[in-house]
């Protein structure tokens, strides 16, 4: 494992594994889509409208999973002072933001037939929205600081503070919901779903995850190479100074 902490070794490994992750991810998403849209029976209440669950729920899971991974990566960068953790967290953030936006968009699409409006201040939807803001702040911080090492350190700290705050925000939003007698939310009570509905969901979630790892590898490679390019440029300019 330690072997791959070396950026060069990681680059080699990532280059070899990327196509496999993309292939497996796309295959699983294709299978999951087919099973979910064609094979799974319609819901007895919602008919076919429920099928958006196969995009919405995995995206919502991923929005949290990606932030969790970023927090782990940032913490390891913080503790072991290893740059790969920062690179991973930075590379994951836009993907996480897109998953979060996807969860929000599909949640709104789902809301229209179910609740009759595009948006309700449902607890989970609200938490997703706040999570999107936190992703955007994290990305903006990276963007705002020119010097990569300093940006990495500040982003690390923000990511960890966010990680501690996300459960608190979630709790406060839940509390806020009970206070305002929010709309009755359609619940995806997992165990009560028939296997024909649940299996595609799990396959989709796995497909999303594997696809994300492929994407992460590509973005991390890009980031590492971009940094090398920057160093080379600095050295060349230094030589002629």
């Amino acid at each position: 494992m330690l072997h791959y902490a070396n950026p060069q070794n990681f680059l080699n490994l990532a280059r070899r594994l990327t196509p496999w992750f993309f292939g497996a991810g796309i295959a699983m998403i294709a299978v999951g889509t087919y099973l979910g849209l064609v094979i799974a029976p319609p819901d007895y209440q919602q008919g076919d409208a429920f099928r958006i669950i196969y995009v919405h729920v995995p995206a919502a899971w991923m929005s949290l999973f990606v932030y969790g991974s970023m927090a782990v990566a940032s913490a390891s960068a913080f503790i072991f002072k290893h740059p790969l953790g920062d690179v991973a967290a930075k590379a994951a953030a836009p993907a996480g933001a897109v998953f979060t936006a996807l969860a929000l968009a599909t949640g709104m699409l789902w809301g229209k037939p179910m609740w009759g409006t595009w948006w309700v201040w449902d607890g989970r939807l609200t938490s997703e929205l706040i999570l999107l803001f936190i992703y955007i702040a994290y990305i903006a911080l990276w963007d705002a600081i020119d010097e990569p090492t300093r940006a990495a350190r500040m982003a690390r700290i923000l990511c960890l503070v966010g990680a501690i705050n996300v459960p608190i925000i979630h709790f406060s939003v839940e509390w806020w919901q009970t206070l305002h007698q929010g709309v009755t939310v359609f619940r995806t009570d997992g165990p009560q779903m028939p296997a024909s509905m649940l299996t595609p969901l799990l396959i989709m979630a796995l497909g999303y995850t594997v696809f994300f790892v492929g994407l992460l590898f590509v973005r991390m490679r890009t980031e590492i190479l971009a940094r090398r390019l920057r160093t080379l440029r600095l050295n060349i300019e230094g030589a002629f100074a």
């Binding site: 706040i130 803001f133 936190i134 955007i136 702040a137 903006a140 911080l141 705002a144 923000l158 503070v161 966010g162 705050n165 608190i168 925000i169 709790f171 406060s172 939003v173 509390w175 806020w176």
Partner: peptide
């Protein structure tokens, strides 16, 4: 940037 970072993190205070 400061507002973008701080406001979402302060949401629990707003709610409570």
């Amino acid at each position: 940037l400061l507002a973008l970072i701080v406001l979402p993190l302060n949401i629990p205070a707003l709610i409570f």
